[in-house]
Design a protein around this nucleic acid. Structure first.
Lengths: 153, 153
DNA sequence: TGGGATTATATGGGCGTCAATGGGTATATT
DNA sequence: AATATACCCATTGACGCCCATATAATCCCA
């Protein structure tokens, strides 16, 4: 499996370290398995993260926006300038920068939510509430969610 | 046969392991035969499962949505973070996460129901009741059932 | 074709390995 | 020196791997 899936709740120790879930670590390419990038989510008070390889993909997404639009500048600035890289130690732990922890309201515990090609880090309670809200919004349009999950080979 | 069919009733042992029915295992591609994905059914208190190939299909669909839309996040969150992958051991057994067991009311035994491209895991009694109910609903519209069964390719 | 023999499946349990977490210490940055 | 960060080692509990058994299914040959 090469996608970030499922959710995990890990603790931040006295030194500020937190384990990246093992299943997430395994997705990172063996080459850059000791480094990830983090940035503030645009749409929610959460941190998004992924392997460094994904940067190109993000760049492509932004490039697809109209270059002369305000959105282009906004996304470009909000994402690229906010990206930080962090190293993963031998035990699979890393440090969440203080600014990002503040942005997400994270203190002693954090929740990791798989999002396919990337993942989100939330303050646990807020994260759970967010998934409930998302699901509730989607269930209002059962059809679309069913379509996503139903196989049409 | 490459479809999940029939029903099976297996036990959960002290370690929480349960056998995936052999006929289900054989449907999984030899490549990823030791991994399946599980998620809460949208429509019923049951767990749905399938091979990882199907997940990649879903991922592709989500990726085609507008990355900066709210829908993207809703789908991504509701699907990827709710999906769990579990490994199948050499004997064909796997672990059902506690949260999913709770959702389906499963304790010491579980029923597997083939659903074609995926399968459902139910608390045995509820599962049986559900199939009776489904059948009863179908029979109320005999005409449409007959059409389904007699329709020529 | 009958019936023993082989194989497969569901299930039980021992045990080693790995993941998450804690903490000491060295190295470094300023 | 003081703070921060990486490496090393330790602990605990969960999980995977291996081996074992009972029952069911299949085979195979006389």
């Amino acid at each position: 499996m090469d996608l970030f899936v499922s959710k995990y709740f890990n603790k931040i120790d006295k030194k500020g370290r937190i384990s990246l879930p093992s299943s997430f670590r395994n997705i990172l390419p063996k080459a850059n398995r000791n480094e990830i990038i983090l940035y503030k989510s645009i749409k929610s008070p959460s941190i998004e993260g992924c392997g460094v390889g994904r940067l190109k993909e993000i760049a492509k997404r932004i490039n697809n926006l109209d270059f002369f639009s305000e959105d282009y500048d906004d996304f470009s600035t909000s994402i690229f300038s906010e990206i930080v890289t962090t190293n993963i130690d031998k035990e699979g732990r890393f440090l969440i920068p203080e600014e990002l922890k503040l942005y997400a309201g994270i203190k002693t515990e954090a929740a990791f939510f798989g999002q396919g090609h990337f993942f989100q880090i939330w303050e646990p309670k807020q994260g759970l509430k967010n998934t409930e809200d998302s699901r509730r919004r989607l269930l209002k349009e059962k059809k679309s969610l069913r379509m996503m999950l139903t196989q049409q080979k």
